[in-house]
Computed example of a mutant assay.
Amino acid sequence: MKIAVYGASGFTGRLVVAELAHRGIGAVLVGRDAERLQRVADAEVRQAPLEHAALVRAFRGCAAVINCAGPFSLLGEPVLRAADAASCHYVDIAGEQTYLARLFEGPGPDVSAVPGVNDDGLPSDLLAHLVAGRVGSVRELVIGLDLVRGGGAPSRGTLRSALANLDTFTAGGLGYADGRWDPDLPARRTTMAFLGAAVPVVKFPLPAVVTVPHHVAAGRVEGVARPELVAGFAGVTPELVEQLPEGPAESHRRAGRWIIAVEAVGDEGRARGVVHGADTYGTTAVTAVEAARRLVADGAAPGLLAPAQAFDAADFLAFLETRGVTVDGVRPPRSRSSSAGPRDRT
């Protein structure tokens, strides 16, 4: 199995390449600067500009593509279309809600493609699927994110993506109600408990607000986060991005924590689940590699898929528990060596 990594010389791209090596999976490093790619790892390098034919040639012979190059609102779709033309399954690490919404509104690829596979997007989507399954007909689903930085700033790639989507972050992004996504839908939730007492939260453009309604028939879905997180994105400037290091030091990464809480209300009561862990960037690398591996090894339906449409939700969360993630409120079974294969997408 060979997996291509586009944007392998970036901060998270290098972590993805290291995770592939750790898992014993062959990596093909693809990007515009061959010299930079050669410094990443002792792996095959294929130079390619952001041009369709060149990318297709670079991806040929690979089983899947992991796209780590943002902003995805600019760079995501060209890489996805090239992966599709090269018959490669596709995952990316996008956290950009408007990009994900645009993908799901457009024509689907012939391969299996799961965008938004990162420390936030995939666990929140899978957890929401399991929590929603405990309340019958879902009237309301709330997904909350809390980030505790370990002293380091976000990576430049994260901040460049934030700059490209600044209006979305400051306005709170999409909410879902009555069968449609609405940027003007205000969040009802003003407080939420994560791992302790309830804290103030505000509307936030979480990827799962886009993906969850594709597999959960919910009357309403909203994403929230602490106000401090919104304020942090609002203060990003191009000058700030260039002044920061490419990414946080490993000690800072491991000292930080991410927490996702999901609460559902339905005709059979209420349910809640929490998933949390350390090192957002390291978790993103683990998640992206495992998602690509499962698409290749186990298969999934063709087209644009939410994580819970492509993977068995409980089994994938159980795998993440073997890599230091904690899941509370829903008990996934012990992870198998591979996923259960394509799941029923009703």
Results as ranks from 00 to 15, higher is better:
Pro302Thr: 11
Pro307Val: 06
Pro333Thr: 01
Gly329Met: 13
Leu320Thr: 07
Asp298Ser: 15
Phe311Glu: 11
Pro302Ile: 13
Ser335Thr: 08
Leu304Gln: 10
Leu320Tyr: 11
Ala310Gly: 00
Ala313Gln: 06
Pro307Glu: 08
Arg323His: 14
Pro307Asn: 07
Gly329His: 11
Leu304Ala: 05
Asp298Asn: 04
Gly324Thr: 05
Asp298Cys: 15
Glu321Ile: 01
Ala300Leu: 06
Ala314Arg: 12
Leu305Met: 01
Gln309Asn: 02
Ser335Arg: 11
Leu305Phe: 10
Leu304Ile: 10
Ala314Trp: 12
Phe319Tyr: 15
Arg331Thr: 15
Val327Cys: 06
Gly299Pro: 06
Leu305His: 02
Ala308Phe: 10
Arg336Ile: 02
Arg334Met: 08
Leu304Lys: 02
Pro333Ala: 03
Val325Thr: 14
Asp298Glu: 15
Gly329Cys: 06
Asp315Ser: 14
Leu317Phe: 08
Arg323Ala: 13
Leu317Met: 05
Arg331His: 12
Leu305Val: 09
Thr322Asn: 00
Ala308Arg: 10
Val330Ala: 11
Asp315Lys: 03
Pro307Tyr: 10
Leu305Arg: 07
Pro302Arg: 05
Val325Trp: 02
Asp298Ala: 15
Leu305Asp: 10
Ala313Val: 09
Thr322Gly: 04
Gly324Asp: 01
Glu321Phe: 00
Ala318Asn: 01
Pro332Arg: 12
Glu321Cys: 13
Leu305Ile: 10
Arg336Gly: 15
Pro307Met: 09
Phe311Asp: 10
Asp328Cys: 08
Ser337Met: 10
Arg331Ala: 14
Pro302Glu: 08
Phe311Ser: 07
Phe311Met: 07
Arg331Met: 09
Leu304Ser: 01
Thr322Phe: 07
Arg336Pro: 04
Ala301Cys: 04
Leu320Asn: 07
Glu321Thr: 15
Ser337Arg: 12
Gly299Asp: 03
Val325Asp: 03
Arg331Asn: 11
Phe316Ser: 12
Asp298His: 08
Val327Met: 05
Gln309His: 00
Phe316Asp: 03
Ala300Arg: 00
Gly329Ala: 05
Leu317Trp: 06
Val325Arg: 02
Gly299Gln: 09
Pro302Ala: 06
Ala314Lys: 11
Ala306Ser: 15
Gly303Lys: 11
Ala310Arg: 00
Leu304Val: 08
Asp312Pro: 00
Ala313Met: 12
Ala310Met: 00
Ala301Lys: 02
Leu320Ala: 13
Asp298Lys: 05
Ala310Tyr: 01
Asp298Val: 13
Gln309Glu: 15
Phe316Ile: 12
Val296Ile: 12
Gly299Asn: 11
Ala297Asp: 14
Arg331Cys: 03
Arg331Glu: 15
Pro307Leu: 04
Phe319Glu: 11
Arg323Ser: 07
Ala310Leu: 02
Gly299Arg: 08
Asp328Tyr: 09
Leu320Phe: 07
Ala310Thr: 12
Arg331Tyr: 05
Phe319Asp: 02
Ala297Phe: 04
Val296Cys: 13
Ala318Asp: 00
Val327Gly: 02
Phe316Val: 05
Asp315Ala: 14
Ala306Ile: 09
Asp312Glu: 14
Glu321Val: 07
Asp328Val: 13
Pro307Thr: 07
Asp328Ser: 10
Phe319Leu: 15
Phe319Gln: 05
Glu321His: 02
Leu304Met: 14
Leu317Val: 06
Asp328Arg: 15
Gly324Phe: 00
Leu305Gly: 09
Arg336Thr: 13
